[in-house]
Amino acid sequence: MTTVKLSVNGKEMSAEVEGRTLLVDVLREKLGLTGTHVGCDTSQCGACTVHVDGKSMKSCSVLAIDVAGAEVTTIEGMANPDGSLSVIQAAFKEHHGLQCGFCTPGMVMTAAALLKENPVPTEGEVRAYLEGNICRCTGYHNIVKAILAASGQDVAAMAGE
């Protein structure tokens, strides 16, 4: 066992890990941050997406020990400081961009990464950026709408509504 220190959602944390302990296991099992989910074994569904040093990563395919010292942001750290929903989270609610909620944390983290890189994406750019996030409920329609809305665009027009 090795002690790994991480800054998670702005708080310094440490956990005892084995070499094989995945970042997602530290978050879920050691730190009780169960908002980050696991939906597959092949790093494709994206439910486990978190930010590591400001970049989106699949926490099911990163060893905790390999990112020791990193700053990690999870879905639990995405709301405004007063606890209210951030612009992206609020857009997901406003546009019904979630149903069962299981893929949602990964979708929000990916959306945040996209809008940081590309503040006003096209519909095609949003869809392409979601390549690594699978949703089975929404047909992506309202997820794409929510992300476009969070970027300040007129989504009703873009969605032909």
Binding site: R28, E29, G32, L33, T34, G35, T36, H37, V38, T74, I75, E76, M78, A79, L85, Q89, F92, K93, E94, H96, L98, G101, F102, T104, P105, V108
Partner: peptide, 21 residues
């Protein structure tokens, strides 16, 4: 009506079976 479920799901507070320790 906007969904009341969404707040917990959007903030990582959903409680799915595997989240129960």
């Amino acid at each position: 009506s906007k969904r009341r479920e969404d707040f917990r799901f959007l903030t990582g507070r959903g409680k799915y079976t595997d989240d129960v320790a």
